[in-house]
């Protein structure tokens, strides 16, 4: 009994310090996340339907002009991640969208009126990210901002799903996670909501020029950690 008390007393000085650094949020846990959001549109490039001009110079004769754009659209995602410690984690996931690919046709050589033509595409991105929780900016015990960055694979299917276009996706962003519930040593150790804002750079896929195209995106989701 005396020994136990002595140990207890010895621990007391350490407890306040542990309480200050101990997270209310669980770490070393697997986390799954599902939600939805909005992916902003982006220009896919402009091109002219050109004819070979009947001159010695290479300047072409324009039959009509085309501006292409991927319209903004809602997205849905699922993710799975692992937090190594309260600051660092990794995650991977799938995001799906069904945006409209729109081509605006103008400047017809025979004065056809401008027209916009479109198709719907299926857009999948599989990506992996690093998450850095910014503990220093924590709001209370259960709300943490974070930054994230990663890369992935872009797969886009045209209408009818007969043609697949592939590309790459890079993203950088941040957000905030709020734990509605956090408890240790349970099968479900935590649950909460999460908001993300990201800047995507997509290259390849359905594109009519070579450069990467920026898309802004916001999303919200619920997560559960095990």
């Amino acid at each position: 009994m005396i020994r136990l008390v002595a140990i207890a007393i010895a621990l007391i000085p350490a407890l306040p310090a542990a309480a200050q650094t101990r997270d209310a949020v669980p770490a070393g846990r697997l986390e799954v996340d599902a939600g939805g959001g909005w992916l902003g549109g982006a220009s896919l490039g402009s091109d002219d339907a050109n004819l070979r001009a009947a001159t010695a110079t290479p300047a072409p004769f324009r039959l009509f002009s085309v501006d292409t754009r991927l319209q903004s659209a809602p997205t849905f995602h699922v993710k799975a991640g692992f937090s190594f410690n309260p600051r660092f984690g990794v995650e991977g996931g799938l995001t799906y969208g069904h945006p409209e690919l729109r081509a605006s046709v103008s400047n017809d050589a025979e004065s056809a009126p401008p027209i916009a033509v479109a198709e719907r595409i299926d857009q999948y991105s599989f990506d992996a990210s690093v998450i850095i929780m910014i503990r220093e900016l924590a709001i209370g015990q259960r709300t943490r901002p974070f930054v994230s960055g990663g890369a992935g694979y872009l797969r886009e299917l045209h209408e009818g799903q007969t043609v697949v276009e592939q590309g790459r996706v890079f993203h950088l962003g941040g957000g905030v996670k709020h734990w509605l519930m956090a408890r240790d040593r349970r099968f479900i150790s935590g649950a909460g909501i999460r908001m993300d804002a990201r800047l995507y750079l997509m290259s390849g896929g359905i594109a009519f020029d070579d450069g990467p195209r920026p898309h802004g995106a916001v999303s919200g989701s619920v997560f559960v950690s095990f």
């Binding site: 690919l101 081509a103 033509v117 009818g160 043609v163």
Partner: peptide, 11 residues
């Protein structure tokens, strides 16, 4: 001159 009102996706 008339344009088809959709994008045609060649398979």
């Amino acid at each position: 001159v008339t344009f088809y009102d959709r994008l045609y996706v060649a398979p």
